[in-house]
Design a protein around this nucleic acid. Structure first.
Length: 818
DNA sequence: GGGGGAAGGATTC
DNA sequence: TCACGGAATCCTTCCCCC
């Protein structure tokens, strides 16, 4: 909490300093700090919040104690060595110092409050807080004189300033105003970096360079010349003095050169450019901005605060000027140094940046390398000189604070709601992530986060909730029999699939389906499937029909068997991780040819275009992996037989059957016994021409259920598959009989639907392979289903689970069966 | 020992 | 009015697995 940030009053005043008002902000000078801190402390004392703050402070104190013990153990030799290293690193950093950029940080003054005052002039001279009745987002400068500031609870603000007016937040208005300001920013740096609605970094190096040759007319602006008249309300007249009243140093009030009739001419240097920018912002929005101009982002940020409000400050692009500026700069002014770091450094006698540099050797021995490097850079006045606007988002979250909540039902309901909100946000940006984190804050303000990294990316409410509810449940169980008393819940999704990874994944899957058929750069039209990891598609995809409280059915069954042991670390997850790694490697070092297959089991790239060899590889992989992974799972599975065949054409109907129990499965139940011993029923209702290998004794039945019609070939023969080596990717859908068997008809290609005049599987496979490569592009996008049969939960009974696949090619389908 | 995940914390607006 | 946010990022520590 910003308002609680440390402000040392006296040495050793303990919590008082920890809880005291942070008057490190503009507009707080000359206030009665002592009186304000007393009010804050009295208002906070005894509350749960206060107690938690006390605990946190004690934790920091312990960290400091530990650090001091470490410090006491440092030997002279270690210290000397560290000094040498610091010296060397300092020299390295100096060599890399770049003073060539002109970086500007612009910050709107008390932005939300200023917008409210602009739109309601009667608020102009009154203390104003913007926010809710719980917490203020910001305050105007009148309120700041009372000690009221951003992130302060409203009841405390009211104690400090009983006449405080509270105005609710109106983000639409702030966004609209922010857009107006950003239009101006873009004219000075098209690649400016917005940090929030009210601040941004700009690199105006190029602008200043071009500006040198600009005629005066291009640097001349008129009072209210850019003001958007249409934006004025009828009762409002343009009031040139509105902001000028507030701040004497308005850019409008002190133009570099005053032209006739309110014309203002600005100069050509960086400072003049920034003054001009601020002038234009004020003319356009009637709001003032402050700015800092420096050779890097860190310094520019500190500078923008220097003459706030409505001022600007520049550090010349000279090493000595930078060092002079930094010398007496309190470390707390540096972005990134908060109250904890300040307290820790203060314990080492470091309060300014000069001291930070003097104690460099000590810091290198007490802090991590990352922290130490950061400190050293600060102490030298170094910062980023490149404004990177292309940083990819790392996570997305939503959280909510509420009155005490102890009911489990309510907690799960809220959790689902949050997952829904988050899913909407994710989908708006087209994001899918692998890690789901639940954040919980109990009524004692203790925060816990619990995370789960999944084998596949998630983005929908159901998917996120499937993970989030498990995490929540674990916490509820952990507290049991005590109720989990919450005051905040949040859900976050992170671990997004990066652009490169998406491309790689897409490429792999495409090549998996249709090696050599897609031109480079061409993308699939079916946006859903290409981003789904293969194993998710192969049975780990949640059935949309499953109750919201159920996770992926297959996964759930497995975890039941493991008696609570997480299956997250199972073969599937490891394989997924391995796949991502391998694909990343493939991306980094593409092979001689772009045409290859990726094995769906080991995810190794398989060179060459020989489907036969590839099939053989997949079979071997399946044998080795599944024999190990599923041995127990399938050992009791007696299923064998044939697959189900539909004679209907392509369509997208979904079977409404889940968890079908089959008592005493017999040969002919429509179960495909696969090479991995993992039996599947194949409801091929969208596969054209998927034909079974019928055999003597087979009877053909038409199976009807409530939603679908299938003609099913039931086989009653001894077609038990005994060897895995016959499972053929992209080819065989049929079950190989132990022997050709008398009267066994020829194989029918599932692609062209033409009977093949051979009983030789190798020849048949070759034919199907050829067919596949011809038809695969057209086939992509067709939805189909298959049934996965898990090992019997009850001996003699089978539990069938539907798994649905979207937008996949038949070749993939066949592979799933394999 | 390195890498990755989980959890917690610090920091910013 | 009896009360202290929400979102995002980065860092550290611990632990497990390879």
């Amino acid at each position: 909490l910003d308002f609680l940030n440390i402000q040392k009053l006296n040495e050793g005043d303990g919590l008082f300093s920890w809880m005291a008002l942070n008057d490190n902000k503009a507009g707080m000078e000359g206030i009665n700090r002592e009186k304000i801190n007393k009010i804050i402390l009295e208002a906070s004392k005894g509350s749960k919040f206060y107690e938690n703050e006390l605990k946190k402070e004690q934790q920091v104190n312990q960290r400091i104690e530990k650090m001091m013990l470490q410090k006491a153990q440092i030997t002279e030799q270690q210290f000397r060595k560290a000094e040498g290293q610091v010296e060397k690193l300092t020299a390295d950093l100096e060599r890399g110092r770049d003073l060539g950029r002109v970086v500007v940080h612009v910050d709107m003054d008390a932005f939300y409050a200023a917008v409210e005052m602009r739109d309601c002039p009667e608020l102009k001279d009154k203390p104003l807080g913007v926010g809710s009745w719980r917490l203020l987002s910001t305050s105007n400068y009148h309120a700041r004189k009372f000690g009221v500031r951003a992130a302060m609870p409203t009841f405390i603000a009211k104690k400090l300033c009983p006449n405080l007016i509270i105005v609710p937040l109106n983000f639409d208005k702030y966004r609209a105003t922010s857009a107006e300001v950003r239009e101006i920013f873009a004219e000075y740096d098209p690649n400016f970096l917005p940090m929030s609605l009210d601040e941004a970094y700009l690199d105006i190096t190029d602008h200043v360079m071009h500006r040198q040759s600009w005629p005066e007319s291009m640097r001349t602006y008129y009072l209210h010349s850019g003001y958007d008249q249409a934006r004025q309300r009828p009762e409002e007249q343009p009031d040139a003095d509105l902001s000028l009243d507030l701040f004497e140093d308005s850019p409008s009030a002190s133009p570099s050169v005053s032209g006739p009739a309110g014309a203002v001419v600005f100069g050509t240097c960086a400072e003049e450019a920034v003054r001009e920018m601020r002038f234009r912002i004020e003319q356009k929005t009637m709001l003032t901005a402050s700015a800092g101009i420096a050779p890097n982002m860190m310094l520019a940020k500190v500078c923008s605060d220097k003459n706030k409000p409505n001022g600007q400050y520049r550090i010349p692009a000279e090493r000595q000027a930078v060092m002079d500026f930094v010398k007496n700069l309190p470390i707390r002014k540096v972005p990134g140094i908060g109250k904890v770091t300040e307290k820790m450094l203060s314990a080492l006698g470091i309060k300014t940046c000069a001291e930070l540099h003097q104690k460099g050797a000590l810091l290198s021995l007490l802090f991590s390398e990352t922290s130490f490097h950061h400190f050293l850079q600060i102490s030298l006045g170094l910062g980023s000189t490149h404004i990177n606007r292309d940083g990819e988002r790392k996570s997305m979250s939503t959280e909510r604070t509420f009155a005490e909540m102890s009911s489990v039902e309510e907690q799960f309901r809220l959790c689902r709601e949050l997952c829904g909100d988050l899913a909407n946000d994710l989908q708006k940006e087209g994001l899918k992530g692998r890690t789901v984190t639940v954040k919980l804050k109990n009524v004692n303000f203790e925060v816990k986060t619990r995370a789960l990294t999944l084998s596949s990316v998630v983005s929908t409410e159901e998917e996120i909730f499937a993970a989030a509810k498990d995490l929540l449940k674990a916490e509820i169980d952990h507290m049991s029999p005590q109720p989990l008393k919450l005051r905040l819940m949040g859900v976050r999704v992170s671990g997004f699939v990066s652009g490169d990874e998406k491309k790689s994944l897409q490429k792999s899957i495409i090549s998996f389906f249709q090696s050599g058929r897609l031109e480079s750069g061409e993308t699939s039209q079916h946006s859903g499937a290409e981003e789904l990891p293969l194993l998710q598609l192969a049975g780990f995809q949640k059935d949309p029909g499953v109750s919201s409280l159920d996770v992926c059915p297959v996964k759930q069954e497995v975890s039941k068997q493991e008696a609570g042991q997480s299956e997250q670390q199972s073969f599937f997850q490891k394989a997924h991780v391995r796949r991502l790694r391998l694909q990343a490697e493939q991306q980094e070092s593409p092979g001689p040819s772009d045409q290859y297959f990726t094995c769906p089991v080991c995810f190794q790239k398989q060179e060459g275009m020989d489907l036969g060899k590839f099939n053989q590889h997949v079979d071997e992989c399946l044998t080795s992996v599944y024999t190990a992974s599923w041995e127990q799972d399938v050992s009791s599975c007696p299923a064998q037989g044939d697959y189900i065949r539909t004679e209907e054409g392509l369509h997208h109907r979904q079977l409404q059957v889940t968890n079908v129990d089959v008592t005493e499965p017999k040969i002919g139940n429509g179960i495909l016994h696969t090479s991995m011993g993992h039996s599947s029923i194949f409801a091929a209702h969208t596969m054209p021409g998927l034909m079974s290998q019928t055999s003597e004794g087979c009877e053909e039945k038409t199976s009807r259920n409530s939603s679908d019609l299938h003609k099913v070939h039931y086989c009653d023969g001894g077609h038990q598959r005994t060897s895995s080596s016959d499972s053929k990717f992209g080819g065989v859908y049929s079950v190989e009989p132990e022997g050709p068997g008398p009267g066994c008809p020829a194989l029918i290609c599932p692609i062209c639907n033409v009977q093949q005049d051979t009983s030789d599987l190798a020849i048949f496979n070759r034919h199907v392979d050829i067919c596949l490569n011809q038809g695969v592009l057209q086939e992509i996008g067709q939805e189909f289903m298959f049934l996965s049969v898990k090992s019997p939960a009850v001996p003699g009974r089978f539990s069938f689970t539907f798994v649905y696949l979207l937008n996949l090619a038949p070749s993939f389908h066949s592979n799933i069966i394999a």
